[in-house]
Design a binder for these strands. Structure first.
Lengths: 138, 138
DNA sequence: TATTGTTATACTCTATAACTATA
DNA sequence: TATAGTTATAGAGTATAACAATA
């Protein structure tokens, strides 16, 4: 069966996820951020988003996001800006120090992964990117 | 530089991690488990472990584990068994219903991943497993 | 009426520090 | 003294349900 053939690959993917999660946590912590906060800041590097949109991107409820944004806003890492087109809505944007910290978090994390994958030859690297593309886009 | 070459692969890996995390959460929830609880139960499928060993495996502090085990023990999914060789220690073991639920969680999750990777040919599958091995064993 | 975001509430996850009992 | 595990405490993440303001 298909499932039986998949066993090895699936197991690898599970281990990989846990490894990446650990790296993410280890990279965020020295910056004073939880992994979820680091994730949110990095998402915001792509530009301001509304709460509903952010909650969809991060796969969490809007009300959960409200508390996260509250905490980050208290630390002046993000700002709630009024949405000129809709008075109910707001746009969450990085402050200057938030942007700086987001870049640091992104760099810390990607550097760690880059170290891990440094040993892979270009061909293998390409193969993995292609395979992952199939997985993430489905 | 090495980092620049890694950009595409690193980005892929980050997206993959988030995708897998979402799948994990979606698979655990209908079973009444948080992703962390599902993880713990699945680890215990490999046999009973002491608290210190479990905390190392799961990368969390022993005290955090204590509360998790408390909650699962209240639901009679795991049991604290005395360690015959050391009266300070205990061994965390799955109960019969815990074992059943752990299998369900494992199946639910691996089935979801198996679906995602069903389109990959055997050669690509092998290449990915090999590459992931390099990453997770470093 | 539908949507945006917040509030109230309850649980879970997690870490740090201090502790007990045993090795 | 060192180790296994727990307790106490605090903060963060998350969901559900109910709500206010605007579309």
């Amino acid at each position: 069966m298909a499932v039986a053939q998949d066993t090895e690959l699936v197991g690898s993917l599970v281990q990989l996820m846990h490894k990446l999660q650990d790296l993410y946590a280890e990279s965020s912590r020295p910056l004073g951020l939880t992994p979820q906060q680091a994730h949110l800041l990095c998402v915001l590097l792509a530009g301001p988003f509304g709460m509903t949109e952010l909650s969809r991107i991060m796969s969490i409820e809007r009300s959960s996001l409200t508390s996260m944004v509250d905490r980050l806003e208290r630390r002046e890492l993000v700002e709630r800006q009024p949405d000129p087109a809709d008075r109910r809505a707001c746009r969450i944007a990085l402050s200057a120090p938030g942007t700086e910290l987001a870049h640091q978090a992104h760099t810390a994390y990607t550097d760690r992964i880059a170290e891990l994958t440094a040993g892979l030859p270009a061909t293998q690297r390409k193969a993995v990117v292609a395979a992952i593309g199939v997985i993430t886009e489905s």
